[in-house]
Design a protein around this nucleic acid. Structure first.
Length: 273
DNA sequence: ATACTCCCCTGTGGGC
DNA sequence: TGCCCACAGGGGAGTA
């Protein structure tokens, strides 16, 4: 579930707690979630390092450490990074604990899809997944022309193309459906068929829906929590996601659910031409 | 290259 | 009440 607005909210809540804080020890409860670098063990790399900066790229959370090391974390579906100011007993889904100079960081993940990798900061941009990421949709550089350019020639439907992190970084199932609804665009439109005006409307819709998501501190449809364990509020503003069978807030038509590219998609058959 | 499907996991909830 | 199974969805691997 964590998409750009959720990861950004985790980043902000986390940064306030762990910036300039040293890692005292690491306890890996389910080591499968953690990966070191070369011969070096994850815990070995991390122990004694100071967290200097917390950044985000797409849905990746980046923790830059001293001595030229970084952590790259991806929450996938159910991952959580929770900060506790004092010692905290581990829960049933805690996969690892970072003991800090001040407090503890718990990586919790029901479905074990999430991953945290340690690597030299200079290797970050070579990492498959990061290297191929498209532009940040909230940056000024992300314009309608850029979007249209990246969708040009694509035969896949708009919904699938927008989920492709190489096209742009950070959209997931929830915000893609919401953006397409706000742009009045049908999710099955061929991605490459977008006109100039449509690209303009879609770009604005993407920026708006992501900004609103961050403003609301994310969408807690089910699992998502920020680093303080708090839920977001954007689920209250969702117009289509999870609302199949209910009336469209704009025209009253019944919202339709359809599987596109293996993902559940909800849209208004009347508003989204 | 592109566009699919499958798989990784576990908890939840609907149907019978 | 209990059982079964589809479903949740990000992304990497595999396939045509």
């Amino acid at each position: 579930m964590p998409e750009l607005p959720e990861v950004e909210t985790i980043r902000r809540t986390l940064a306030g707690h762990v910036t300039d804080v040293r890692v005292r020890a690491v306890r890996l409860i389910w080591p499968g979630a953690f990966k070191g670098w070369g011969e070096q063990d994850f815990a070995e790399i991390l122990t004694g390092r100071r967290i200097e900066r917390v950044e985000r790229r797409g849905k990746y959370l980046l923790l830059h450490l001293d001595e030229g090391w970084s952590l790259v974390a991806h929450m996938r579906m159910t991952g959580r990074l929770l900060y506790y100011p004092a010692c905290q007993e581990v829960g049933p889904h805690t996969r690892g604990v970072f003991e800090l100079e001040r407090g503890e960081l718990h990586f919790q993940d029901v479905r074990k899809f999430g991953r945290i990798q340690a690597l030299p900061t200079e290797e970050l941009n070579e990492l498959p997944g990061i290297a191929a990421l498209g532009p940040e949709p909230l940056e000024r550089e992300f314009t309608p022309d850029v979007l249209r350019d990246r969708l040009r020639g694509k035969k896949a439907c708009l919904k699938s193309a927008l989920l492709d992190q190489r096209v742009l970084a950070g959209l997931g199932n929830i915000y893609t459906d919401e953006a397409l609804f706000r742009a009045n665009l049908h999710p099955e439109r061929p991605a490459g068929s977008l006109g100039e005006e449509e690209a303009k409307v879609l770009t604005a819709a993407i920026k708006e829906v992501l900004s609103a998501g961050i403003e609301a501190q994310g969408t807690s449809f089910r699992d998502y929590r920020d680093a303080d364990g708090r839920k977001g509020e954007f689920q209250r503003s969702l117009q289509v996601y999870g609302r199949q069978g209910q009336p469209c807030a704009v025209c009253g038509e019944t919202l339709v659910r359809k599987r596109l590219g293996g993902r559940t998609t909800v849209f208004c058959p009347a508003c989204q031409a």
